[in-house]
Design a protein around this nucleic acid. Sequence first.
DNA 1: TTGCTCCTCACGTCACGTGAGGTGGC
DNA 2: TTGCTCCTCACGTCACGTGAGGTGGC
Lengths: 271, 271
Amino acid sequence: VKIGELAEAAGTTVRAIRHYHRLGLLPEPPRSSNGYRVYALEDLVRLMRIRWLAGSGVPLASIPTMLGSATDGDARTDLTADLEALLADVDAQLTALAGKRRALGAMLDGHRRGGAISPLPESLAAAFDELVEGEDDPDTRALFVRERDSWEILALSGRTPQTYLDAASAIVTDPVQRHAVVALYRRFGALAGRDPATARSEIDAVADGLVRFVAPLLDTADTLFADWAAQAADAVARGEPLLVEMLPDPAQRAVAVHLIEHLAAGPEEHR
Amino acid sequence: VKIGELAEAAGTTVRAIRHYHRLGLLPEPPRSSNGYRVYALEDLVRLMRIRWLAGSGVPLASIPTMLGSATDGDARTDLTADLEALLADVDAQLTALAGKRRALGAMLDGHRRGGAISPLPESLAAAFDELVEGEDDPDTRALFVRERDSWEILALSGRTPQTYLDAASAIVTDPVQRHAVVALYRRFGALAGRDPATARSEIDAVADGLVRFVAPLLDTADTLFADWAAQAADAVARGEPLLVEMLPDPAQRAVAVHLIEHLAAGPEEHR
DNA sequence: TTGCTCCTCACGTCACGTGAGGTGGC
DNA sequence: TTGCTCCTCACGTCACGTGAGGTGGC
């Protein structure tokens, strides 16, 4: 039989068979006078065993060991370990894939209704879209975009608890609270370019205003977020500025530092 | 911020970031005097969005479209289709992985108890092992190995119903029946090298003997197997010998053809 | 001075797929 | 003659990882 027939019998491709030959997985059969490979029953068996193992997730490199054709001495003991490692690997892939499936499903749902694709919860994403679209002043608009970006970072960091995001959605959905936060954002934006020393009182005022919005969230949020805030405050204290450093303006940076220090202080302070 | 800090903040590697730069997924940031890349907040956002999508199974090549930074006109409609295709893909991978998991689990179980790794049901594998190990005549031994190989092909073809394999296990487990089949195998093996014309009666006898074992299996097996047998008979009739051609001996091949013809005739004939 | 981070080629990984260019069989 | 299968390089895919060889910062 020729390579094409062998491939069909085994349910593979001619290319795959030649690949196995190059890897030495499947021995090269004798050739007929025209140079064609001529296969026998043993080759089909070997090929089907290879496909069986490969299809079960066994890497091609370890198939010789599995099939016992390697020159080995202690293969007996290793095999169990190999199989267990493979199983653990496949399990990990399964949970990862399940996660991807969920994420993709959510993306598709959001896109069918919402339009733009975003890692934020729908209400938050919609609220930010409105803010950005409805703003005519380019500076404030850029500020809103930056704020949305920051929230996306928080959401994607995987360390921000859902309750925190939900609470933010609630604030931004309620017209009164929303108006208040937008006013604070505007003041935050106006700080750009000012000397942190002269603007000290405004910096404190804006930071305190923001703290007043964040404080109740801290009460409901679980320990994950408290840990994160503590770490961030630690990093700021040690001079490792991480995210904060990415804010280009010094006065705005001062607000962020202030805010993080408040967050790290914990909920007790604000009761 | 430098590339290492960015990588840590986003939970990736420096290499991955440079990779995204090469692909044009993430724009090259300005450099500091020493040639180091200097990142800003927008880069972190972009990077985290990329990681989010990539982690959700979106291919890097389609991420620009998803993030809307591509110069496109009809991206709106395409996006839904893209996401749906991705979802279907992930689903397919999930079922494939689940299958691998099952196969690996069975392999591990079998290896923990049995020893050798085989695609055959345990009782069949064990029976063949006994046959092969207990045989001193090298020719008969080779014959048994070939027979085991054929059964593995049947099992791995995916077209052989489980009932058929189970029935074979039963035959090979029962001492009386097993003795009878082994005798038939020996006669089959003895046909090697004989002229099909002179050995005609022995060929028919061996084939009939084998048919007598296979016939009751046909009654219980579902239509899948009947289809397969019919196809095989068709192929033989058309001169496409497939598996049969791989038997090197002409007399033995005649037995196989005989057997397949009987199988394709269906169960009615033997009642 | 040591050790850590940064830089740029350039090649490796995994399991094949995809041409390119040519020959044999019906 | 046409179309199909076969052959051998040799490079492509995907998402990075891995050295190789060198420089800058503390």
